[in-house]
């Protein structure tokens, strides 16, 4: 039995692959790509929400949003750390993001023009992320799975925070309810596109499923999310902007309308409303933070030298 077959057997046995295990080069590469994209998404994902921190309508909303954005930074870290266990270099990963070479979730290229967008993002975008991340808790690569377990624990407050915001608006004045409906109208389709195209149109899916990196198909996850979310919208008296959305008694799932994949591919290519701003913001943050990194470096070097001289003197 060759190494590849042995590896496949190991994975088929629901065993976790750890950093020091032999693994096919393609397994390593595909995981580095997927995990780093996930990490980049967390970090870029901080931007559309950070936009509203200074303008949150109450202290409670402000501290919750701040805590959520801090969490996203932490999530990015867990994921960069997981990618590093596969031999990726952090600075290379960051450089790829800043240069525009690396991809991140297309959802974060949409703008957040109103406070209600904070509700929609927490409820729908984090909701969709949760469906994906719960599945990934069972991914075959150990460090990635463990990062997902940690992230899932923290993610549920994110969704609740978003739903609470939407609920407050939906149960408020007519103008507030309109804000909530408008945000739902703008975020619904991008959110269900987050799961990616149908797996026959998704080039990496088959191998990912075989290696148990991916445990459910894009369509399965999308259906899961829709089935869970429709009653949540109904409870608030909000209408999901899909005229073809309908409960199917036979399948036990909601039928939904045709997705406009052209928009998805366009946004991924870099033509989304905020692609340029997101990258500019990340580059600005990186450049303006350089003095902090340099100062910390210089201090560490100074301390190390001091210690060396002390031992010599002794």
């Amino acid at each position: 039995m060759n190494l590849e077959d042995r590896f496949q057997d190991y994975v088929d046995g629901e065993n976790k692959v750890e950093p020091k295990h032999w693994m096919p080069e393609k397994y390593r590469k595909t995981l580095i790509r997927q995990i780093s994209q996930h990490a980049h998404s967390e970090v870029v994902g901080m931007l559309p929400e950070a936009n509203w921190i200074t303008r949150a309508p109450s202290l409670r909303r402000k501290i919750a949003l701040l805590a959520k954005v801090q969490d996203e930074a932490g999530h990015g870290l867990y994921l960069y750390s997981a990618a590093e266990t596969l031999g990726a270099d952090r600075q290379d990963l960051v450089a790829d993001l800043l240069s525009g070479k690396a991809k991140y979730s297309s959802i974060f290229n949409y703008p957040t023009p109103t406070w209600a967008d904070m509700g929609a993002i927490g409820w729908l975008v984090d909701g969709a992320a949760i469906a994906n991340q719960v599945m990934l808790c069972r991914t075959s690569y150990g460090p990635y799975a463990r990062a997902m377990v940690r992230i899932c624990k923290e993610e549920s407050f994110h969704q609740r925070q978003g739903y609470e915001i939407t609920m407050t608006l939906a149960k408020g004045t007519p103008a507030q309810k309109k804000l909530a409906q408008d945000a739902l109208n703008r975020w619904w389709w991008p959110s269900i596109m987050m799961f990616g195209p149908s797996d026959d149109n998704s080039p990496n899916s088959a191998q990912s499923m075989k290696w148990k990196i991916k445990r459910k198909s894009n369509d399965e996850l999308r259906q899961e999310f829709i089935d869970k979310t429709v009653p949540q919208a109904e409870y608030l008296g909000l209408t999901i902007p899909d005229p073809d959305l309908k409960w199917n008694e036979e399948t036990g799932h909601y039928n939904y309308g045709e997705i406009n994949w052209e928009e998805f591919y366009n946004v991924i290519k870099g033509n989304g409303k905020c692609n340029k701003q997101r990258l500019e913001a990340r580059n600005k943050a990186h450049d303006e933070g350089a003095w902090v990194r340099e100062a910390a470096n210089a201090y560490a070097e100074k301390q190390a030298d001091r210690k060396k001289n002390e031992t010599h003197a002794a």
Binding site: L77, A147, R150, A296, Y299, A300
Partner: peptide, 12 residues
């Protein structure tokens, strides 16, 4: 063990 991070020294 909970994970890893980058830092210039132990204090940071």
């Amino acid at each position: 063990h909970v994970g890893s991070l980058h830092a210039p020294d132990a204090e940071m």
